[in-house]
Each structure stands twice: as C-alpha cells, then as structure tokens.
Amino acid sequence: MDEKTRREIEGKILPKYRTRRSACMASMQLVQRQKGYLTKEDMEEIARLLDMEPVEVEAVGKFYTMYNVERPVGRYHIQVCENLSCSLMGGEHILKHIERLLGIKTGQTTGDKRFTLSVVQCLGSCGTAPVIQVNDDYYENLTDKKVEEILERLK
C-alpha cells in the first residue's frame, strides 16, 4: 500500500464512518484497485489503520467474491455470470468461447498477465443476459461477435 492510498483512507474514507472498522470494505476496495488483488501485507496494513485484527480483514475479503485475496489477477479481470438467467441465454457458451479465444481455463491468467477469467454468480443484470463484467464495467446482451470485439479492444 502506498502513501497516497493510506492518506486517502485516512482523509476520504474514514470520515464517512462513525467507527473505524466500518471503513473496512471501502478501504479494501481502494487498495485492491491498485494491482487488482490484496496481499498479506495489504490486509495487515488495513487492519492496523482500522484497529482491526488482520484475520477480520481476511474474513471480509474471503466472504465477498469481489475481493481477490492473495489471488493475483491480470490487468483485465473478466467475470462471467453463470447464474440461471445468463445460463439460459447462453452464458455457458460465452464462457467456453472466451476460454477458446484466450487459450486459458476458468480461474487462470494469460501468460502476458493481461486477462484473468473467473466465473461469478448473479451480477444482477438478468434483463440484459448474458452478462460479463470486466474490471468495473458491464458488457451486456453478449453474442460471440460482441465478445470477440471486446477482447480485441482490450488486447
């Protein structure tokens, strides 16, 4: 965690909460944004800043799937929804297609550290299924062609 992030937690995140530990999730999100995942040292530092025990930070991180605890991810983290609506609308096919295009399996990262592919549960956008999330952005109503374009743009 760099000095700037630490200052941002102290100055911007903490004042929003009445108790320090309440800032845990927001702080983790901020730290994760830097390299896409949280290290042991990051969690220890967050715990220290927020008067928590490191294991509490880890427990929060491992409860929510959007935190990557000690799991390095590529520059683009592709999360494919495989919940009911997306599956019915071809989500599983989309997943296979991405695997084929990137040459990796679910849970893996490409050799150039550009893409990590994960499967997630409902992204809450069933009306526009199938859906994937790349970092913070949603891509909806996907077809094979759309997926190819998206990946091409990110390469």
Binding site: E56, E58, F63
Partner: peptide
C-alpha cells in the same frame, strides 16, 4: 480479548482459523 481467530470464507467453505 485477543480476537486472533476469524471465520474465513463463506457457507460450507467457512473455516475458523488464524490470519492466512
């Protein structure tokens, strides 16, 4: 008064253990 144990993970994957 130590709190060095936590419930890590969720559902059936939850594990009560130390930090990492």
């Amino acid at each position: 008064g130590r709190g060095v144990l936590g419930a890590v993970g969720r559902g059936v994957h939850q594990e009560e253990t130390s930090f990492l």
